[in-house]
């Protein structure tokens, strides 16, 4: 020690304590013994498919292909034909909907698909297999109907599929089996009778349907809301998120049947025809299906199916249009 003399001094303990105080102030940043804990799970991201922008129609609709000769029996399908290939596979793969009541829907009590579109699928399966139930149903959003055919994932699409010139670029349609009119579904108490009363309001229709362009062409500044399917639009209507749903009368009839507080109103905003969609590569299948439809027109089974499903809802029941061919 350098301190002069053996005398105690208060400075030394004060220095010790001051050092302690300074270190303490700096010491609050002492690293902890336990670092970061486990990272938690990452959330699920909602996947939304990009939708192609709707393009304007491209011109006039082409008629379908004429059936050749009498319909072959399931035992005598031409070898090498698309039908024979489907038969060898053991099942017909059909793109349908399961949400459109009375047209193509899943009966929640049985889990089975039913409706007038589904009847057509069974008719075609019966003609190929002799058994109407040899079917694999594939359900996708209606916006994906064309791509199902383009990618060869299904043999046929029977899903309120309106014939348009634009779709004919990648889809070969059968002859039409029904004529429908685009109208409106509104709350029964709304007092709305015509689309003009909805000017500036929110009107819902499904993504990828022809109805959207019709609505946008109206000079009423409608706020057009699009959802994956018409049933989703009906849910939105019931929840008061939209003022009306616009779609084809056959579809809307099935929706009104599920909710007595809604009704189908208004003049026809557009008239279109439904047909069965197939690949342009399967010309033989298209002619075969047209032969079946011709038989259905002749023996009244197409009209009977329409009457069975839509008779209570639509007056008059949509007529089965006559077949026309381009060849």
């Amino acid at each position: 020690m350098t301190s002069p003399g053996p005398v105690v001094d208060v400075k030394r303990p004060l220095v010790f304590l001051a050092v302690a105080a300074i270190l303490s102030l700096g010491g609050f940043v002492l690293p902890s013994l336990h670092g970061n804990g486990s990272a938690a799970a990452s959330g699920e991201q909602a996947a939304t498919k990009p939708r192609p922008p709707s393009k304007p129609d491209c011109g006039t609709v082409r008629e379908s292909l004429r059936p050749v000769g009498p319909l072959p029996s399931p035992q005598a399908l031409p070898s090498g034909s698309t039908m024979a290939r489907i038969k060898a596979r053991g099942r017909l793969i059909a793109g349908v909907d399961q949400g459109k009541y009375l047209l193509g829907y899943r009966n929640p009590q049985t889990g089975q698909l039913e409706g007038s579109d589904i009847d057509l699928v069974h008719m075609i399966a019966a003609a190929i297999f002799g058994d109407p139930n040899r079917v694999q149903f594939v359900v996708r959003d209606i916006a994906d109907r064309v791509s199902l055919i383009e990618q060869g994932q299904v043999d046929i699409v029977v899903n309120s599929f309106t014939v348009t010139c634009l779709r004919q670029k990648s889809v070969e349609f059968s002859t039409p089996y029904t004529t429908v009119h685009q109208r409106l579904l509104v709350p029964a108490a709304s007092g709305v009778n015509e689309v003009e009363q909805l000017a500036g309001q929110r009107v819902c229709t499904s993504i990828g349907a022809t109805n959207e362009a019709v609505l946008r062409r109206l000079p009423l500044h409608l706020q057009v809301v699009t959802l994956p399917g018409i049933p989703d639009c009906v849910v939105a209507l019931q929840q008061g998120k939209v003022a009306a749903v616009s779609s084809d009368d056959a579809i809307l009839a099935g929706m009104a049947a599920q909710d007595p507080q809604t009704k189908v109103v208004g003049r026809a905003l557009a008239e279109t025809r439904y047909a069965i969609g197939m690949s342009p590569k399967h010309v033989d299948l298209v002619r075969f299906v047209n032969g079946l439809l011709e038989r259905g027109r002749a023996d009244g089974s197409l009209a009977a199916s329409a009457h069975k499903w839509l008779g209570e809802q639509l007056h008059p029941v949509p007529a089965v249009p006559p077949a026309k061919y381009r060849d």
Partner: peptide, 15 residues
């Protein structure tokens, strides 16, 4: 809706 045999239930389920 399911109990009534109506398919609108599946849209509610999806929502």
């Amino acid at each position: 809706y399911n109990r009534q045999g109506l398919p609108l239930g599946q849209s509610y389920l999806a929502q």
